[in-house]
Amino acid sequence: MTTVTADPAPAPAPAGRRPKQPSRLRRSWDKHWYAWAMVIPVVVVLAVLIFYPLVRGIYLSFTNLTEANQAAEICTRSITGSEVCKPNPNRWEFVGLDNYVRVLSGEVGEFWQWTAVTLIWTVACVVFHYGLGLGLAVMLNRPMWGRTLYRILLVLPWAVPAFVSAFAWKFIFNERFGLANSLLTAVGIDPVDWFGDWRTSLLTAIVTNIWLGVPFMMVALLGGMQTIPAELYEAAEIDGATPWQRFKNITLPGLRPVSMTVILLGTIWTFNMFPIIFLVTEGQPAGESEILVTGAYRAAFEGIRNYSLSSTYGVLILSILLVFSVFYRRMLRKQGEVW
């Protein structure tokens, strides 16, 4: 870490304490170079690894490029040493909005059904993640006997690789051999065909994902609570506030920046959460519990991989999430939060 000692001035407040500088660019550079220096490494890595493929993906969604038609010519190497190259008969081309028309009209895949399932899945998961995470964090934030033990036990689900947990829950919901149906039978309820109906099938995936995601929420919010200055609580107590009032007026506002982030990113991640649906329900029954990402993956990546189709789905998913985050931001701004 470089320690800068030469330049004492720049406080975040833009008030013009300095004499006027020759050019605006120069002024801007002088004032902000350290901020830029702090973010530039991240920007470079993201630009190369994510942004470039993403922009290319948007471009591809207007073509019909697949694994089979992407090369200008297909060469066959013979083991005897010769190589024959033939021009690709169906070379890829621009198809305008064809991909979008085909996807949105339902000609390819089940876009609208997948979107509906995705929305149910996302809302259910995020609400329970945040609600349960907040509740547990509040409880664990108090001094009490066994707090460290509770914290460790409650965070353990996070430490198991997600795909192992997915298998564990799949075993629990196994219709013939699973614990869930054994318990139901034990209390005299008929066993459930969990994966025979999309609602119960989706339920198993949501339960799995809630179990997986609550520890993260809990820890993130616990960290947020620790940055709330203790004297706020003390002052409130002197004012005679009840625990509920303290929670509502100190804890929740104090958690706002963190909550805003975890809800926003939690929504984005859950929306794109691939492995849980893929492994736990496998889209059963008959693809009815598929969400957008898993549906898109199966539609585009089984057999000959269809890059233009997968990009089209990617762009549609991106658009939905962008619209969501713009609305989310507007909502927050109404309440005085800016970012």
């Binding site: 975040p12 833009p14 801007s28 004032k31 902000h32 350290y34 901020a35 830029w36 973010v39 920007v43 993201l46 994510i50 942004f51 493929p53 993403l54 993906g57 926003l264 990113l265 984005i268 991640w269 794109n272 691939f274 990402v293 898109a296 993956y297 585009a300 990546f301 997968s310 990009s311 789905y313 990617g314 998913i317 991106l318 999430l321 962008l322 985050s325 970012w339």
Partner: peptide, 25 residues
């Protein structure tokens, strides 16, 4: 802390990088 030019777009860019499904990338 710093209200530098490009701050808000950058935060948005960070979000956008999380929006495109990894499976496709």
């Amino acid at each position: 802390r710093f209200n530098f030019p490009g701050r808000r777009p950058l935060m948005m860019v960070f979000l956008v990088t999380q929006m495109f499904p990894v499976a496709i990338l």
